[in-house]
Design a protein around this nucleic acid. Structure first.
Ligand SMILES: NC(=O)c1ccc[n+]([C@@H]2O[C@H](COP(=O)([O-])OP(=O)(O)OC[C@H]3O[C@@H](n4cnc5c(N)ncnc54)[C@H](O)[C@@H]3O)[C@@H](O)[C@H]2O)c1
Ligand SMILES: NC(=O)c1ccc[n+]([C@@H]2O[C@H](COP(=O)([O-])OP(=O)(O)OC[C@H]3O[C@@H](n4cnc5c(N)ncnc54)[C@H](O)[C@@H]3O)[C@@H](O)[C@H]2O)c1
Lengths: 220, 220
DNA sequence: GTCAGCTTGTGAATCTGTGCACATGTCTCT
DNA sequence: AGAGACATGTGCACAGATTCACAAGCTGAC
């Protein structure tokens, strides 16, 4: 389930705030979802709640981490050291959450050997060695749209099996490779759509509930 | 529908490549979805296809733009001029797609008056003037998690009605405000979940189809 | 020990979204 | 003009996700 990471984040926050137990109702409130949904989701992991009490926060964190495969680090490799690639590499939040940057590569010789976020930018050719050397299975594409397919091909060839793509293009990858796209312009367009509805609804329209958006993930 | 922006992007690409007409089948192929779904989605806009021929690309682009409210620009204001805020402000792709940066603000005096991506960073106090002055209705939060709720409150107070949040926290906003969260760590966790499944499945498990992920959007 | 009050876990009803299949309509070629 | 090929638009059935409602189980107080 794609909601588990959200629960996890909330639970970690709660644990830091000193909360030892939480009810499905409380967690649902914080996550902005239905309480029954929370219980169904968590029951999928097995039965770790105590009736009459709720869930032990620490243990739940441990179980969700286990389910998500976060009981060990997943090094990632970033392709493209432009605006976005540098911001990502310089962001400490990934390492904290178990995704250390194993390396960042760029095709541009001017970028190579510059240092961003404590990591030296390496030439594109070294991608296979980075992937093999640290057993990297997750790649991040932060190249211009025109180069994204090339970047994906190289990542797959190097042995990466999951890709997070920031370029606004649909990539084609072999079956078995998991790909996930984050398109910020699409996010803004969805907001503008809501703004548009707001403006159009005007006087006549009653307050309408806006349903959650369908997802964008896919496995080829 | 959250798929309209994806269609739009593909259609614009196709238009630039000189394609005048496209069938639901062709568009579905490029978008990686079912053809019937494409037709259902497009029929929601009204009936703009021609049987036996397909859809006229230019006209479809126009109609989707209209539906999404992209027939005029939506200026955005960015709160937080750190790693991410600077990358966003310096990214030309937003302006191209109808989301010019009306301003970027930061609470840190050291950041104020520095120039990123052609825009001068302005003090947090000026947020209301920026919003009012250019009729901004979309705000972007690129502050640390601890400041995100404060940023949201200020944006709402200033008159913004849609927020794109990059901080990994759940924000609470008044009813009627549309909020959308992009949490990159969550995206990576979903990938690691798939990697985990891949590893666990091993020999015994048959090839399993991975369903699309549910969405993350919400309107309070 | 037992009772009252909570909270989980889950069957059942419901709702939403997806995909198939086909009737309907358009274009082209002869 | 007519026929054949092609592609849209939509009724319908199915699958999955969501929500409700409630029985089962735990805790703490008396
Ligand atoms: N910067 C943002 O805030 C932002 C926001 C949304 C989307 N994006 C998308 O993210 C991607 C990167 O954006 P950016 O602003 O960092 O662009 P950028 O131009 O600043 O950086 C792109 C980098 O990729 C490198 N590159 C080009 N081809 C390559 C290849 N084949 N292999 C490896 N490296 C290659 C270039 O040398 C450059 O350093 C783009 O697709 C953009 O649309 C960026
Ligand atoms: N950098 C990334 O690649 C990245 C990736 C994923 C998520 N994020 C998230 O995006 C947010 C920003 O990340 P960053 O790397 O840019 O952090 P950063 O620390 O580089 O920048 C944060 C900026 O916000 C400013 N700020 C702090 N409080 C503020 C307030 N109340 N009002 C206005 N401005 C304020 C700070 O002065 C600073 O300039 C964080 O929540 C982070 O978790 C960043």
């Amino acid at each position: 389930m794609a909601r588990l990471p959200v629960y996890l984040q909330i639970l970690v926050d709660q644990a830091e705030a000193g909360v030892a137990n939480i009810s499905s109702e409380g967690l649902a409130e914080l996550a902005g979802v239905n309480a029954a949904k929370v219980r169904k989701d968590l029951s999928y992991l097995g039965s770790y709640g105590t009736r009459g009490v709720g869930y032990e926060v620490d243990y739940l964190v441990y179980q969700i981490r286990r389910e998500l495969g976060l009981d060990h680090d997943w090094p990632v490799v970033i392709v493209g050291a432009g605006n976005l690639g540098q911001a990502l590499a310089g962001y400490g939040g990934f390492t904290d959450r178990g995704f250390p940057v194993a390396g960042i590569v760029d095709i541009d010789d001017d970028k190579v050997d510059t240092v961003v976020g404590g990591a030296r930018v390496r030439p594109l050719d070294e991608l296979p060695q980075i992937v093999a050397g640290r057993n990297v299975s997750i790649g991040v594409i932060a190249t211009p749209p025109a180069s994204a397919q090339d970047a994906a091909d190289r990542l797959v060839k190097a042995g990466v099996t999951s890709i997070l793509n920031f370029a606004p293009v649909v990539l084609s990858v072999p079956i078995g490779i998991t790909i996930r796209k984050v398109d910020l312009a699409v996010e803004l367009q969805i907001l503008s759509y809501h703004e548009q509805r707001r403006a159009t609804a005007q006087s006549g329209g009653q307050l309408h509930a806006v349903p959650n958006e369908p997802g964008r993930g896919a496995t080829a």
